[in-house]
Design a protein around this nucleic acid. Sequence first.
RNA 1: GGGGGAUUAGCUCAGUUGGGAGAGCGUUUGGCUGGCAGCCAAAAGGUCACCGGUUCGAACCCGGUAUCCUCCA
Length: 873
Amino acid sequence: MHSEDIRKSFLNYFKSKEHKVCKSDYLVPPSDPTLLFTTAGMVQFKPLWAGAKLDFARATSVQKCLRAGGKGSDLENVGKTLRHHTFFEMLGNFSFGDYFKKEAITWGWEFVSDVIKMDTSKIYVTVYKDDDEAASIWNKEIGIPEKRISRLGDKDNFWGPAGDEGACGPCSELLYDLGEEYSCGRADCKPGCDCERYLEFWNLVFPQYYQKKDGTRDPLQRRGIDTGLGLERLTFLLQNDAENNYETDLFKPIIEELENICETKRSDEKRHYYHIIADHMRALTFTISENILPSNEGRGYVLRRILRRAFRAGRKLDLNKPFLYKLVPIVGEIMKSRYPEIVGSREFVSKVILGEEERFEITLNNGYNMLLEDIENTSGNVFSGETIFKLYDTYGMPVDIIKDEVDEKGLVFDEKGFNLYMEQQKEKGKKSWKGADIKTSNIFSEISAKSGSTIFSGYDKNSVDSKIIALVKNSSLTNEVKEGVDAEIILNETCFYAESGGQSGDTGVIKTSTGEAKILDTVKDVNGIVIHHTKILQGKILIDQDAKIVLDIKRRKEIAKHHTATHLLQAGLRDVLGGHVKQSGSYVGSDRLRFDFSHFKALTKNEIEDVEKLVNDMINDAMEVNKYNTTYDKAVEDGVTAIFGEKYGDNVKVVDAGGKSRELCGGAHVENTSFIGGFKIMSESSVSSGIRRIEAVCGRSLYDNYSKTNNVLREILVLLKTSENEVIERVEKLLGKVKSLEKQIEKGTNLNDTLKEFEEKKDNIDDINILIRKYQSIPGNSLRAISDELKSGTKNGIFCLISTESDNKASIVLSCTKNVSSTRFHCGKLLSGLAKEYGGGGGGRPDMAQAGASKKIDLDNVMMKIKVRLAQK
RNA sequence: GGGGGAUUAGCUCAGUUGGGAGAGCGUUUGGCUGGCAGCCAAAAGGUCACCGGUUCGAACCCGGUAUCCUCCA
């Protein structure tokens, strides 16, 4: 059975049981910051068990998942076992407060035995240790013999939550006995054993608790069902000629392509390197095509580690140059029927991977050179743990490479010391992890569980009459808040837009019969409740009160202008740069906008001007901006730009500006592009490799900016007595003039005069000439240059050069020829004392010293001090 | 989220009690030259990442920010 047929038959089966077929969510869950990646099919449904608004009570999906980095990472297992993957697909069926254990088990069994016709005699099941109900359904109703039902503990049969909080509960798993030859051979090998023999392929979870961040559990508002059937494992079980997951149609072509590249067939002792590379390539292709890029932090860093692991596996296959990028097309071939989007981004993905491979080569080389140097500098015969740790921790040098090199040079590798440093590092990491705002998050989860998500009516209203359903002060619930305090207010309905998709939260005021508060910001909780951050201005505000809230409409209008402009900007960028431009983050405020997008080079001046012109044309064309609802599939079919996943297929909002820009977007927009008023790019810069950032302004902010810079320009024109057309030329000329004057001073154009004067004065003691000279406002550099020139023009002399400013501040350079400084004179010592006298300080070497002063300097006094010092010797 | 490291000329990097911003490569110009990275000479090129502090004086010391590298979670 082909893997795609397996996906289809699963979805069709549960569709026939009245499940809604849902699209796979993104690998980065759009609205769940507690999760690094989507790790299971249930992730996109988490709020539905907790009580969010329900459009359907049964769902089924094929979900792309990534388990690497953070909690529940399988990164290290890939290559070691045949069943773990970083990237994989999960088939699932879900119930939200609808059916429960009985139907889940019955349908699960019907699917494996009747639909895909597995050999049921090899199937074992496990249940949670005290879950008699599940055990009895398996035994009595399905007819699985007691001896093939195992009861296991928390580790195996209690699942969840995904992330820091969410639904969880006991579970029941289906296992397939692969037979003796897959066994670890231990006498006690049985279902639940870590080895490969009893392969878990389907986990039926019975969520009935809500686990909070602090680890405590409440009963779930809607208990239900959450199952996960691993596509890779099932495909292996159904493809008879496959010995393991990697020999199925999902992986085999990648491995064969890899064999072509390294020109070596997979062999038993090196097979796991092929597995690592094939697995990681799928993960990389999918994540990067979702615009997650390798970087030095967060999700991006997980990607970087995956890539490096694959790259190093390549070295074991004698692939020492970048090669991973060559595997992108084959992954696309295998997956394109279900995920057509990855074909479109193929070139971008290859480019990113190649760039990252090249960078890793540099890191390895640098580390290697440092390693050789450290080995060189080792005095004893032990290569210390501290040094190993430094190379690994700071410079990313893989430990096994260090060990190989150290062994080869005949030194002792201090593993114990290294481990000690590692322990400390881990300890530090653990300590710092605590202190997240656990309490607050819990409160909002509780509120949302009780009252569901907030009704939003801000698309057509600027004010609403609503009711206060919760008040939070200092992270705890309260019934009343008084004048002067900060509080979070939750209403049953709001017209305030909560910060989302880059758009800033709204501000405004809230009034009740007893008081008034200012709404400073509006944000949304994971579970869909809208939180108004407020400061109470007057009186008091009570729970359950009726309240009227009014938007700061002026501000909102400016936000809408910047938001629509952001869409036009994206359209313009695609036009000028090409279709590879994809949004990878944005900020929309009332005074500016910021737009990050994928593109490889800096934009040229021309490109920026072209984009600007296109956007302004769209504004000047006064295009209608239409907003309408449609289904996700219809929107995609129509070619609408989709960036952040609308969660459930139906009912997405499209914003269409005159047909030139069409995007899925739930934010605030103007009715006509002409309202934007105008658009100006203020800066273009790089955020990370492959991502550029544009900052721009429009509306009132554009005028403010224009007015400010124009005023500055006018002042400059007046100062330089020139016109707008000539100002640049004039400034260039001035700069040139300044430069040549500075040079003249440095070279000491007046040197000859000075020297002459110096000779004439002959103010000397023991044939040592002394010169003191005062200048007006010349830089310290020039003083030094002049003194150098003077020194080279004589054999026996002391020079004191002073430059004064109008406010009596002065800088002083005192220098003397070598023969003087080496026998009887120390410029530094003399000058530091002298400078103190004039309200400054200073010092320097015997032959040259510098100082500053803040009082008027008496030149005769200076001369006397120098002479006194000379006379002392 | 926490640690370690980095940021100096177009590129690769030196630069210690805090007191004259450097080298190599590259670029331009002139001269020499029958080659392999030709040779010689000269010149141009710097916000020492940014902001603040200490100091008479900061590339250097202190604090903060940004970006990059790297490890831990």
